[in-house]
């Protein structure tokens, strides 16, 4: 009995049960919602969010109030860079990938340096960086026309690749496996949990805390960059601030996945389910015929309700 209860209390299990319940709800509200095509479409959208959330996840796991508010800016920037580098030609895909990863890593590096060397709280540092990135977007957009996605990239994101499933979903699965391997089986992964749960102890045990933390922000920047590239493939061309929506929803996906914002506890498998949960919820709300105000009210209230299922803080005790 106790085993059953503790199993049901696992964040991943909660998220999966909620996903099934929401799919059932969606199907009963508008028949065809849970059809294979629709589920694939939801998975594509979820994979974009999930890739951003992967970076957010490691930064949050690393503790010391780790959070990356600049991911939305990096996603938008990367979508523009990718569009301009490839400009509709398949040959430009590889250079675009490299340019995006470099940009993501660069801004992650700056975040990491500010957080470690100057000891600026991550929330403040990445918030300031978000402002810089948004300014940079305006500069780039004024200088050059926004580019287009290469047909190859669009096909990778939207068309079936293997077993009728688009490439981006395979990419997401690969990222999920990679993250599970990194977090559970590598020294680097174990060190993330170490600095996240007790930075001082980790430092005393010889973990290069600073370099680790800089690395985490760079990983976050690079994942956001990959998501930006894929987002360009999804939408065809980049438009103003496409990435903004990912800033807080990536954090919510991580929380719904059972990773504590305090750091040191959680994993990526739950975050994947969290991202999917969030996307399905939004999908249902767009399907249902209510106006924007009602949609937002229901969305906000549902998010609060769902949060109650997850890690609530501990009550004060003397």
């Amino acid at each position: 009995m106790n085993v059953a209860i503790s199993f049901l209390k696992k964040p991943l299990v909660i998220a999966l049960l909620l996903i099934v319940a929401l799919l059932y709800l969606g199907e009963s509200l508008s028949p065809g919602f849970a059809s294979a095509d629709q589920i694939l479409r939801l998975l594509i959208v979820a994979s974009l969010l999930g890739i951003v959330a992967a970076g957010q996840n490691v930064v949050i796991l690393g503790g010391r109030e780790g959070i990356d508010l600049s991911v939305g800016g990096v996603v938008s920037l990367s979508a523009i860079i990718a569009g301009n580098v490839m400009n509709g030609a398949d040959g430009g895909i590889l250079p675009a990938i490299l340019a995006c990863l470099a940009a993501g890593a660069f801004f992650g590096l700056l975040n990491g340096l500010g957080v470690t060397l100057l000891r600026i709280p991550p929330l403040v540092m990445t918030l300031g960086m978000l402002g810089v990135l948004q300014g940079l977007l305006v500069v780039i957009r004024n200088g050059i026309p926004s580019g287009r996605a290469a047909p190859g990239l669009s096909a990778f994101v939207t068309q079936p690749l293997v077993l009728g499933i688009p490439g981006i979903i395979w990419l997401w699965i690969a990222i999920g496996l990679f993250m599970a391997f990194m977090l559970n089986r590598t020294v680097f992964g174990h060190r993330i949990y170490a600095i996240g749960s007790n930075e001082h102890a980790a430092y005393m045990a010889g973990v290069p805390v600073r370099r680790m933390r800089i690395g985490l922000f760079m990983i976050s920047g690079m994942f956001a960059a990959i998501a930006g590239l894929c987002l360009l493939g999804y939408s065809g061309s980049s438009f103003a601030n496409v990435g903004e929506q990912y800033m807080l929803s990536s954090i919510i996906a991580v929380v719904f996945g059972g990773t504590s914002l305090a750091g040191g506890k959680g994993g990526y498998t739950g975050t994947m389910a969290g991202a999917l949960l969030l996307v399905i919820l939004q999908g249902i709300l767009t399907t249902v015929n209510i106006d924007e105000s009602g949609r937002q009210m229901v969305f906000g209230a549902t998010l609060l309700l769902l949060m109650l299922f997850y890690g609530r803080g501990r009550a004060m005790r003397a």
């Binding site: 959070i67 807080l248 954090i251 919510i252 929380v255 914002l261 106006d291 924007e292 105000s293 009602g294 949609r295 937002q296 009210m297 229901v298 969305f299 906000g300 209230a301 998010l303 609060l304 949060m307 109650l308 890690g311 609530r312 803080g313 501990r314 009550a315």
Partner: peptide
């Protein structure tokens, strides 16, 4: 009272409040 994490919980209430604002003046 409900002990939700402040960053995500107040983000959720902000969506809710925005919904009411849109209802009051679309």
């Amino acid at each position: 009272t409900l002990r939700l994490q402040a960053i995500v919980a107040t983000f959720a209430t902000s969506i809710f409040f925005t919904g009411i604002a849109l209802y009051v003046m679309p």
